[in-house]
């Protein structure tokens, strides 16, 4: 019983991290139709930057949360640069976009290996969250509960931004009909850069928040990217609700799959993706056919 509950909490925590990663991926794909294969790299960069600040590798030790925000801001700028100077030059060329983003992800991986070496870097759980919560006879790690809380807060904030503000309506108008959005005066290109930067920041934030759980190591980018892809295909691109549901489904499938059928973990993970692609190509909550 305790085992299953703990596995469930771990699944939800992992789902929460996936949500932070995939929400941006989904938004970028939904709005700009760009399959951003650097998204795993943005996650990894966030994790490395954050670890560098937290672990005092630059001489000064930063507070975990401040480090997380700094990492997110840095990666947001990196994302905006990629969008403005590379992807912007390749409108409507998905193959070129795939190749460019894939290329950048390999380059980032090389640079990270050079800068941080091949050994995993541990990130300490932020002080104050190292304990456990006791619910009835069960104890849960406090930090994992906090990650779930953060994802909920971010999810609600994103929903408010997209659904309840004028800028959110402008973004959705840009998704609906980019040309008409420009005709009514919306600066779609500026919005695109903003959304890309926001997605990058969220990915980076997920990277450092996930640090105490996953540690940071070379290859974590290529470990996370396919998971984000599956989440978005499952949930439907551009749909926030889709990202929430997709992340949770994958969080559970991944953790339970590894616990129950370790040799079939990937099979369990990707089978639903294949089914969704065949039966409902726009995803569970998507409006578009990718």
């Amino acid at each position: 019983m305790t085992f299953w509950l703990l596995l469930s909490v771990n699944s939800i925590t992992f789902g929460a991290l996936l949500f932070l990663l995939a929400a941006g991926f989904s938004l970028i794909f939904g709005l700009m139709r760009i399959p951003n294969l650097t998204h795993g790299s943005l996650f990894m960069l966030g994790a490395y930057f954050g670890a560098t600040f937290v672990n005092g590798m630059l001489g000064a030790y930063f507070d975990f949360w401040l480090a997380a925000l700094m990492a997110a801001a840095l990666v947001a700028v990196f994302g905006a640069v990629i969008e403005r100077f590379l992807l912007r030059q390749l409108p409507g060329q998905p193959l070129a976009q795939v190749l460019v983003t894939l290329g950048i992800s390999f380059m980032v991986a090389d640079l990270c290996l050079m800068a941080w070496g091949g050994d995993p870097i541990a990130v300490a759980t932020p002080p104050g969250l190292t304990g456990f919560v006791r619910i009835g006879p069960m104890v849960f790690p406090l930090y994992r509960i906090a990650v779930i809380g953060i994802a909920i807060v971010v999810g609600v904030a994103l929903w408010l931004l997209l659904d309840r503000t004028r800028i959110g309506a402008m973004i959705r108008a840009g998704v609906d009909d980019p040309d008409m959005a420009r005709v009514v005066g919306i600066r779609v290109s500026g919005l695109f850069t903003m959304v890309f930067a926001l997605g990058a920041a969220l990915a980076a934030f997920a990277g450092i928040i996930g640090g105490p759980i996953l540690t940071v190591y070379p290859g974590i980018d290529q470990y996370m990217l396919p998971l984000a892809l599956v989440v978005v295909i499952l949930g439907g691109s551009g749909s926030l609700l889709g990202s929430v549901v997709g992340s949770m489904v994958i969080g559970f499938l991944y953790n339970f799959g590894q616990a129950l059928f370790p040799e079939l973990a990937y099979f369990v993970l990707f089978l639903p993706m294949l089914l969704v692609l065949l039966l409902r190509p726009q995803g569970l909550f998507g409006r578009f056919i990718p």
Partner: peptide, 17 residues
């Protein structure tokens, strides 16, 4: 070519100038 997934009010609001 109205913005189909926006509400009527949002269709107007996004175009305000």
């Amino acid at each position: 070519r109205i913005f189909r997934s926006l509400t009527v009010r949002e269709n107007l609001v996004v175009a305000a100038r």
